[in-house]
Amino acid sequence: MSANNTKHDAVHPIIPREKLDFGLDGDVPKYWFGGDAYKSRFWDALSVIFPPGEKFFMTCVRDFRDRISDPKLLEDIQGFNRQEAQHTLVHRQDNDRLRRQGVDVDKLTKYVDKMLNVDYRKKYSREYTLSITSALEHFTSIIAHSLFDKRDVMKEADHRVRAMYAWHAIEEVEHKGVAYDVMEDYAKVGYWMRIWGLVHASVMFPITIFTIQRQLLIHDGFNAWQRAKLMAKGTWWLFKPGGLLQPMAKHYWTYYKPGYHPWQETEQHGYEEWLAAFNGSKDPVKASEQMRHDLALSA
């Protein structure tokens, strides 16, 4: 069976972009998101999670590699792996920034690595871990709807870190159907396992983020009462009407529909603008800033 030909053709080609320089070894402020400790450490927690998370994604897709004969899907898997490997590399560079602040990054990444790449791999079937992978890939692709909307939610962020997350989101949009196709057409995961994987990820992912964010805030010297106030204010920033997560909400729920496929959603605001800017400069930081400029003009 040809996964891409029998279901939905990918809208965007998977293009690995390698040897990118975001300037993360420069003078990025500790609280790089508008001086806000909660927002900065929320995204820093994501950066800590990504290297072991990308390893998990690639491993879970690789479990079914030998069953696949479709040349287009095999090509897409190769592109998926190359993109995920670059995400790992760049987020490790970003995590070196945390190391320079004295953060025990290795302890935090080992916590995530053990959970995903040891405990989950021992406890759950290969089909179920792929359903979790597909669900997490859904999260990382739909975040582009928040990052690239007209509110410019990252406008207070340092331009270098902002550019890293813009590039990461762009590439997640490009390969968002790969794990799903392997899961559905080769792992033969049915509707209920697919949905349970999303429910599982919907609980595990934020708990993991907030656990690591809490450790970062403890490292920064915030006491329990100060952390509670930061979390209350920050949670409102995440979930309030017009907050960071609102643009993702309707896209999140579509995953529950029977017959859903990631490429049923063909349009991604900001993608073409970023791609045109990057193809012109080959500089991801310039591409991010040009995209923001172009979107502001079209708003």
Rank of each mutant, 00 (worst) to 15 (best):
Q78Y: 09
V28D: 03
Q78E: 05
S69L: 08
D113G: 12
D21S: 12
Y38I: 02
A37L: 10
D70M: 04
H87I: 07
V103N: 05
G102W: 07
G34M: 15
V48N: 03
N95A: 07
R100H: 09
F42I: 14
R41C: 02
W43Y: 15
C60A: 08
V103R: 06
T109G: 02
K55W: 07
D113Q: 08
V61H: 05
P29G: 12
R92P: 09
E84C: 09
P71Q: 01
R82I: 13
F42D: 06
D36N: 12
Y111G: 03
P16A: 15
D21I: 08
F80R: 12
E84I: 10
D44F: 11
L24I: 00
D104N: 13
G53M: 05
V103P: 00
V112G: 05
Y111L: 13
D66N: 07
E75R: 15
S40W: 13
T88Q: 11
I77Q: 01
S47P: 03
F64W: 02
D63Y: 06
Q93W: 08
Q93M: 08
K114P: 00
K114G: 02
M115K: 14
Y111W: 10
E75I: 08
S69Q: 12
F22D: 00
V90H: 05
Q83N: 09
S40I: 10
D70N: 08
G35N: 06
K30G: 00
T88S: 13
G34S: 15
V112D: 00
Y38M: 04
Y38A: 04
C60M: 06
K114T: 14
R65T: 01
